[in-house]
Every structure is written in structure tokens, then in C-alpha cells.
Amino acid sequence: MLLIHCPYCQEERPELEFRNMGEAHIERPKNIADISDEAFEAFFFIRSNPKGVTHERWRHVHGCARFFNAVRDTVSDRFVATYKSGEPRLEVERGEDGELLVKGARS
């Protein structure tokens, strides 16, 4: 069972309290009623399934009930960081030992 840091509760809690809610940073078009079939397909149906860095949404459903975003390495299952929804996409990079780090976090 993973431990997940809820950016709202500011606490690591067991995975049992959370639910994965799919890929992050897919914004619903403001003019959704007017977009083309292709644009709707891209928005609604197409998802990435990367080996490595993934940005995904989680919900602390049995806690504060807030939705938030996370960066996770699908190979190691390790969370790089979690952050509040609405905040910009967190960019990450590989450190010298292959570990994922938040970009700029290395001092």
C-alpha cells in the first residue's frame, strides 16, 4: 500500500484513503459545445499511458475529499510530488542516479 501526501491535509496517509481519478491536466474546453468531433475525441477519449513519468489526479476521498494532482513514476511506483489542483503542471527531471526530481529542486 502506497503512502500518499495530501497537499491539502499536508500529511502522508495510506492509499486506502485515496482514489485514483485518471490523468491530470486535461482541461475541459471553455467552448465545449462548439468544438469539432476531433477536438472532442482528443479531450474525452485519448489518454497517455507512459512508462515512467505520469501526471495523474487523486482524490482524498476518505479524508478531506479534495482532488489534487500527483507526479508518479510508473516504473518504481514512487510519487515524486503532489500538488493542489489548479496549480501549474509540475515538471520533473531525472537526477544522476535515475531518481525523478522536481525540476529545479536539486541544489
Partner: peptide, 13 residues
């Protein structure tokens, strides 16, 4: 409720 919360928190905050 989850569907409503999702839209309220993420699309229509």
C-alpha cells in the same frame, strides 16, 4: 456526489 465534486473543484472552481 463525486461527479459533482470533481466538476466543482476542478472545472468550475
Amino acid at each position: 456526489l463525486s461527479h459533482m465534486e470533481d466538476y466543482l473543484q476542478t472545472e468550475f472552481p
